[in-house]
Write a protein that binds this DNA or RNA. Structure first.
Length: 666
DNA sequence: TTAGGGTTAG
């Protein structure tokens, strides 16, 4: 093979006289060359040779070429261009293109080539349908699925077990479970061979995906032979439905727990916000001698990222390095994400810089990391570098870069990128993009512009949009506009606690206690409960969570004593509790007490009594940090001479020597 | 046979 490659690339045949060709390469040689090609450049050279050797109408070779190009991300256009230059494409050429498009998420285009195939009077075969159905499922187009079903019937291909499998899968994925069930029942006519365990699996998966896990359990129980993955599917379904205990019970009953079932549990705990359990499950798995795969590592790192568990994340990073895991794109992106979300942008950058392969997602997590940590310049630098490597930014990258502008308070830059995305890249903004722009205007106090922007949006503003305007009104004390926004919020989601909490916050801020009471009563009458605030802290690799007013911790008394001490000392440095952040109409002293038990403060006190050697105290909070806690953290960082890092729902606050990286703008 | 499968996933 090496000799053949050398022969090919060192002495290409003269381009102008292709008929005179001293080196003859036959079909099997070309095919094995394509299979062994390592880079895109290599493939392009082989493509050139195919043309020079007049082999461009050889469908066996071209089929291989199309699939090879499609395996490399971002090169699907090469596959398309090869297809377009092929005269009279046959079944194989069509199949390989349809597959290439479906595999690269170009679902619509793959369907359109399927249609073209039919119009060109080329009869689809069994191997055409798995990919066409995959695209249909992804597009969520049930009617299209039915049309294709008819085609399959006409061609008599329903008895093909994989065609049947994909058809049932498609119906389950587009939510037409009755059709899936009917097909499943009818399939018994072809015997057990056709009705494979996988077919059961697909149906059970379908039920889980629409949240009908009860039905899934029923099917599972009557299933003749239980396949490993079915357990995982079901456990995953139960976890997604929040049925943690049932999932655990089922998982315990699995005799041979494989990597996938462990990963499902780890991921399931994480999905339910139980990151501590997710991580202890991961370490239990290691203790039991089960080797994690890339996906397990990604899930475990994700749990660290969510809980802000830097120490544990670093431990997993060490594990990855010493156990021969290749730093492929998935793990790299997860590591960068973990370090960035744990507030360690230095380590995130280090992993990122060392990564051999950087895809859109790797760049994307890095830019997000810069954004939430408040490094606009670094985010911009990454954005430009990414473009120079030829990767085109997508909507998510633009969202990250605009968010970076938001946290840096740079309105003009943010608006510039928003326009650039629309006009230069033809990316249609999503609700999230609009929300960031509203936030951008709102935080800068440009409330009228924000409102005008919302009114001119081409899509109907959702809860988040009005919420962003609302927060801005609150910060800039515009009660009239806040009331308007809150009306919109309550219209959209009358059961969502956010709308009520927002409104009572505004009234409380303005001292309008009667109005606060009115909102609170309304909230109670409608049975709406406020989201509890919680915080995570990791000390010596152990994650602990606190909720506001928490007295459940073993060392609760000590924690509260320590907190009193910090507050007292802070007062001597000029800290006064900012009671406007309390909702209730209560006496000043009580208000102070209510503020005093916010979960991030409890976490801080816990860190101070248990981690003498902690140089940096890292806290993760599920809501936005309140002004009072923000103020106390600043004082605490100065008094204790320790850095305090708080990640709230929006961004990072790095407190150092009495000031915060957000410059009090958040 | 020029080529098709499910489970965990940011």
């Amino acid at each position: 093979m090496k000799a053949l490659l050398r022969m090919l690339f060192s002495k290409p045949p003269p381009a102008k006289t292709p008929s005179f060709n001293p080196i003859f390469i036959d079909e099997p040689q070309f095919i094995s060359l394509i299979h062994s090609s390592k880079s895109i450049k290599h493939l392009q050279q082989i493509h050139a040779q195919i043309i020079l050797h007049h082999q461009f109408s050889n469908s066996r070779i071209v089929t291989q070429l199309i699939s090879s190009f499609s395996f490399k991300n971002n090169f699907i256009n090469h596959a398309l261009s090869i297809f377009r230059h092929f005269n009279n494409p046959n079944l194989y050429i069509f199949n390989s293109l349809i597959r290439a498009l479906a595999d690269n998420s170009y679902y619509m285009t793959s369907i359109s080539y399927f249609v073209l195939m039919l119009r060109s009077n080329i009869r689809p075969a069994n191997l055409t349908f798995p990919f066409v159905l995959k695209s249909t499922a992804a597009l969520q187009e049930g009617w299209l699925g039915m049309e294709i079903h008819t085609q399959i019937l006409k061609l008599g291909l329903l008895c093909d077990r994989l065609v049947l499998l994909h058809l049932v899968d498609m119906y389950a994925k587009v939510g037409l479970l009755e059709c899936a069930c009917q097909l499943f029942d009818e399939s018994s006519q072809w015997g057990d061979e056709a009705r494979s365990t996988l077919l059961w699996n697909v149906l059970i998966n379908g039920y889980c995906k629409v949240g009908k896990w009860g039905k899934a359990v029923e099917l599972f129980e009557v299933m003749p032979e239980k396949y490993g993955s079915t357990w995982s599917t079901l456990i995953n379904g139960l976890m997604k439905a929040g049925e943690i205990d049932r999932a655990m019970e089922l998982w315990r009953s699995v005799e041979e727990r494989d990597v996938v079932s462990w990963t499902t549990m780890i991921n399931g705990f994480s999905l339910n916000g139980q990151h501590e359990q997710a991580l202890s499950m991961f370490f239990e798995m290691l203790e039991q001698g089960v080797k994690p795969n890339d996906q397990t590592i990604v899930c475990a790192l994700l749990a660290c990222a969510k809980a802000g568990a830097l120490e544990t994340g670093t431990r997993i990073h060490d594990y990855v390095l010493s156990n021969g895991f290749a730093l492929k794109k998935g793990i790299t992106a997860a590591l960068v994400d973990m370090y960035a979300k744990c507030g360690s942008i230095e380590n995130a950058s280090r992993v990122f810089d060392m990564a051999e392969e950087k895809d859109l997602r790797t760049w994307s997590v890095m830019i997000w990391g810069c954004a939430i940590n408040g490094y606009l310049d670094k985010a911009l630098d990454c954005f430009n570098k990414m473009k120079s490597t030829g990767i085109k930014p997508d909507g998510v990258v633009f969202l990250a870069i605009i968010t970076a502008c938001l946290h840096a308070g740079n309105v003009d830059h943010g608006l510039h990128f928003f326009d650039k995305m629309k006009h230069d890249y033809s990316i249609e903004p999503t609700m999230k993009h609009y929300a960031v722009i509203v936030d951008l205007y709102g935080r800068a106090g440009r409330l009228n512009q924000a409102l005008r922007f919302i009114k001119n949006m081409p899509i109907d503003p959702d809860f988040v949009i009005w919420g962003a305007l609302f927060s801005a009104c609150r910060a800039h004390k515009n009660i009239q506009m806040a009331e308007y926004a809150s009306e919109k919020l309550l219209e959209l989601e009358p059961k969502h606690p956010g709308g009520y909490v927002f409104l009572s916050n505004v009234y409380a801020g303005a001292g309008k206690w009667q109005d606060v009471e009115r909102v609170r009563t309304k909230m109670k009458n409608k049975g709406v409960a406020k989201d509890p605030g919680w915080s995570y802290i990791e000390i010596h690799g152990q994650v602990t969570s606190f909720v506001a007013g928490d007295h459940f911790h073993d060392r609760s008394d000590e924690i509260h004593l320590k907190l009193d001490e910090i507050t007292k000392n802070a007062r001597e440095f000029g800290y006064t509790p900012e009671t406007e952040w309390v909702l209730h109409n209560i006496e000043e002293e009580e208000k102070e007490e209510s503020l005093g038990s916010h979960s991030e403060k409890l976490a801080l006190a816990f860190a101070l009594i248990s981690g003498d050697d902690l140089k940096v105290i890292r806290i993760v909070k599920n809501l936005k940090i309140c002004g009072d806690c923000h103020s106390l953290m600043k004082h605490a960082s100065k008094m204790t001479k320790r850095d305090i890092v708080v990640r709230d729902i929006k961004r990072f606050h790095h407190f150092k020597n009495g000031s915060c990286s957000c410059q009090d703008y958040w």
